[in-house]
Design a protein around this nucleic acid. Structure first.
Lengths: 213, 213
DNA sequence: AAAAATTAATTAAACGTTTGTTTAATTCAA
DNA sequence: TTGAATTAAACAAACGTTTAATTAATTTTT
């Protein structure tokens, strides 16, 4: 029973943190939304800060494992790997918008050092892996001599930009103000297609050959 | 004397908000950092929230005017305009990292509706203008049939990604952990060049002709 | 030009809430 | 009957804001 309750609290926490921010969410807000006593949060997690760290550790494994499995697959070309990584990130970000907004918030706020450092570490390994795939493609003369780090920033940054805020996303994509763009199946296709096309045009020597589907 | 003091408070506020977030920054923090009495912030601005809105209105005019002046200049090609807009955004974001982190924070947090709505409005007009420039280039057959909205998201998103956090940026660019990447003149060149190159490769029919400088 | 009256700027202290956390008592399950 | 789970109540500290008193600057009147 207690494990389920911990998970329940964490699920409520990620939603509230994403809507109101870490500082903007009180333990009382959390307890009320999760329908548990105020004292239970500290009973289970020790403190509000430790709840947050627990949240990171639980939620952040998936993408790490995804990239690891691609990394040393000899049957895939470097372009295949990049395309699969784009698919992975878009799927991941769109299916967990609340969690990824919380991550972004902690990257932006530098004074909660423990939380900040925890989020930074998540990104570091992923960055290095993707960059080294791009570098390998360049060495094999499959790719042009692009800037691998900044190209990775463009991939992630494009998704993050769309994910910044729902109303922002609706304005960007000319949707009605009230609608929920993140659960629109069209959006996922559209983002994936745009990023892949842009990355291919930028990476490949003869991008004109590649036809838009 | 009072106008200078208001500006002084706002300058301190943008720094503190960017480091600690809006909720994470107390009026007492602000008053102490600006070396004024606690009551002065409410005396000048009315409330903490109104201080924030005042901050937006003062700081956010520049980019608006920049794009407006480009918009109807017949001597510039659509690609010229896009390149100048990229220059403008990179310069602007890198020279005011604190302010733009505050903007991003408010986009991420949706429950402070007044502040959120104010930031959204800033972005809306800029988005529409840049999109219509890209669309014009497509109609003139200068550009391929790209996704104008998402290409704009890629431009802004790339810069935002690099600006998310200093240590994040240092990791991304392989710099030492302590250094200040945003005041490195090399970084501005590198970002500008990457985005322009990527956008050109994506937009132009024969990107191979365009030579990297 | 000096004095008086009025307005603006600044202060320290206090306001009532809300914050994260803890306690001590109670309920529940093993 | 022992230990874990749960509760309501209380804790001190910090929050944004307001007050009432004082000083500084400006305007009006003499």
């Amino acid at each position: 029973m207690s494990i389920d309750k911990k998970e329940h609290i964490m699920e409520v926490a990620v939603t509230l943190f994403s809507e109101k921010g870490y500082e903007g969410t009180s333990i009382r807000d959390l307890a009320h939304a999760a329908d548990v006593n105020i004292a239970m949060i500290n009973y289970y997690f020790g403190s509000k800060e430790k709840l947050f760290v627990a949240l990171l550790e639980t939620k952040a494994r998936y993408m790490r494992e995804k990239i690891d499995s691609l990394q040393n697959d000899p049957s895939l070309s470097e372009l295949d790997k990049i395309n699969l990584i784009i698919d992975g990130y878009v799927n991941r970000f769109l299916s967990q918008p609340a969690f990824h907004r919380v991550l972004q918030q902690e990257l932006l706020v530098t004074n909660r050092e423990l939380l900040h450092q925890n989020v930074i570490e998540l990104f570091t390994k992923n960055t290095q892996d993707v960059v080294s795939i791009i570098e390998k493609g360049i060495r094999k003369k499959l790719f042009k001599k692009v800037d691998p780090q900044l190209l990775f920033a463009s991939i992630i940054g494009t998704i993050n930009q769309v994910m910044l805020s729902r109303s922002m996303c609706n304005i960007l994509l000319n949707k009605e103000a009230g609608s929920d763009p993140y659960h629109d199946p069209e959006l996922k296709k559209r983002i994936t297609h745009h990023i892949k096309q842009m990355v291919q045009d930028h990476l490949l020597i003869q991008p004109a050959i590649q036809k838009q589907k």
